[in-house]
Amino acid sequence: MSNVVTPAILHALLKGAVLSVELSLLTYGLALLFGLIAALMRRSGTLVVRGLARFYIELFRGTPALVQIFFAYFATPQIFTWLNRLVFEPLSGGRVLLPPHLSPFAAAVLALSLGYGAYLAEVIRAGIESIHKGQAEAAASLGLSGRDIMRFVVIPPAVRLMIPPFGNYALALLKDSSLASTISVVELTLSTERAISYNYQPAMMWAAAAVIYLALSMVGSFLFSYLEVVADPLRRRRRRPMTRLAATDEEVGG
């Protein structure tokens, strides 16, 4: 057995898992940013802005993540060459501004974050639109500004509704990060493949990879369940010790 699971192999799997987590976290952060921008653009009063957001969302929701990753990695060198030649060189007096190609890691982050941004944009939009119009009207009738209405009345309950779908997409993204293996990002899936070429134990190694993905997913899942509790004022309060509750009731009475 000792020649099957060597420290080197364990180390490779661990490094792969760490890279998978890094890739997923960075991608998810960017996806949230793209999603927020696209969701705000979709609510814009300008038709062109709305149209651009719609185009982005449809384009990335309607094409496979693997194609997006291949495009980001294999098509960008050609496109960067054209852009350098046609746009940046003439404008900057002969300097080449774009790199010859993206690193595999950068290409994977770019493709996956744009793709997941499109999904998250719809989650954010649906969350905002699901808030009862009456609450915004009540706030307006009290004289609150449009900004304050969004900040205090619409966004807090909307975010609470967004947490479960945010969690779903976070877990989906963690699993989709394995697609980066196809463009030679040595994350968990590719390091597993490489380890198997040393020890010839596919059953054990793929099972190990699956267990690691599952463990990471469960951490994410617990995290989002916790966020749901934190975001819900009633459930949050039930977690507080009773002495604290009694104290606040007294304060009000006094």
Binding site: Q135, A138, G143, L144, V153, P157, R160, P233
Partner: peptide
């Protein structure tokens, strides 16, 4: 309003203090 339209994320007290504080 007919449907009250209170702000569900805020306590009763905060519902009443929000507008005086912000406006």
């Amino acid at each position: 309003f007919q449907q009250f339209n209170l702000f569900p994320e805020m306590t009763v007290l905060r519902n009443v203090t929000l507008a005086p504080m912000r406006v």
